[in-house]
């Protein structure tokens, strides 16, 4: 009895095994081996920031279609150098870019004008009555960016504000494309002075809507040299390709919307990020 059973099961295993071996031998899809090797060089987070479905897809595009090798932001300088060496081309790497949410109006600073009842998603909330925040430019805090982030680098604070943790950010830029209010920007990692406001409204309107909004006073533009901060209507914009002394500009802002992020905010505990997502 035991013998038959053993033989039967062993036989089935043998037949299936040989079938698989034959299939692997004759039905194999031949792929350019370089694709696999290049995929191994890429960071493997599959964030999609390059515009392809994942690292493998991007590697395939680079090898087979000759797409440029500079699209992988999470890889940074090291990956770029490795890719350049592998593909036999030269490429210059810039500084690592990190995302930042240019809004400082949390629930203490920027009031809501009505009770929004609906899907907890920024795009959806933005479409209903123009968003419940009194400031029509500010962060709604319904975590669309946090959900889009492949690495959980965006935290929605207890006061309903999205904050990027730069040390976790892999610069894929997904959040930038997700935010319906276009509040998220990619900035060089070494920069610490930011105008934490995106409101293009006039001063009096901003003041009513938020305690830390840019009121368009232009004081900051006079503190810096070489147009490092310029005005876009009633909003101050930092030109990140020009240097600023963050320590000198930030204290001078009467709207308290220019902040100095040096030192960076303490990293959150892993659990907390997961709970928010």
């Amino acid at each position: 009895m035991i013998l038959y059973t053993t033989l039967a099961i062993g036989g089935i295993g043998l037949i299936c095994g040989s079938a698989l071996a034959l299939a692997a031998r004759f039905l194999a899809v031949h792929e350019d081996p370089r694709v696999e090797e290049l995929t191994a060089i890429l960071p493997g987070v599959n964030c999609g920031g390059c515009g392809y479905a994942g690292c493998g897809d991007y590697a395939k595009a680079v090898v087979l279609d000759g797409i440029e090798i500079t699209l992988c932001a999470p890889g940074g300088a090291e990956t770029l150098a490795n890719m350049a060496a592998f593909m036999g081309v030269e490429a210059e790497s810039g500084e690592k870019q990190v995302a930042i949410v240019l809004c400082g109006g949390d629930s203490d600073q920027a009031p809501r004008q009505f009770q929004y009842n609906g899907v907890a998603d920024c795009t959806a909330a933005h479409a209903v009555g123009g968003g419940d925040k009194k400031c029509r430019y500010g962060c709604l805090g319904y975590s669309s960016c946090a959900r889009a982030c492949p690495v959980g680098a965006i935290e929605i604070t207890e006061k309903n504000l999205a904050v990027v943790h730069p040390e976790l950010c892999i610069s894929c830029g997904k959040c930038v494309r997700t935010c319906p209010r276009h509040l998220i920007k990619m900035v060089p990692e070494s920069r610490h002075a930011h105008v934490m406001c995106s409101s293009k409204d006039k001063g009096p309107i901003v003041k009513k809507a938020c305690k830390v909004g840019c009121i368009g006073c232009r004081i900051c533009t006079k503190q810096v040299e070489d147009d490092a901060i310029t005005m876009d209507g009633f909003l101050a914009i930092v030109n990140y390709d020009k240097p600023i002394e963050s320590a000198t500009v930030a204290p001078k802002c009467p709207g308290k919307c220019i902040v100095d992020t040096d030192p960076p905010p303490a990293p959150v505990e892993e659990e907390k990020v997961e709970a928010e997502v």
Binding site: F114, Q115, Y116, N117, G118, A127, V128, G129, D132
Partner: peptide, 8 residues
């Protein structure tokens, strides 16, 4: 008027 609820 208490206009506090807004939804689709």
């Amino acid at each position: 008027p208490v206009l506090n609820v807004v939804s689709t």
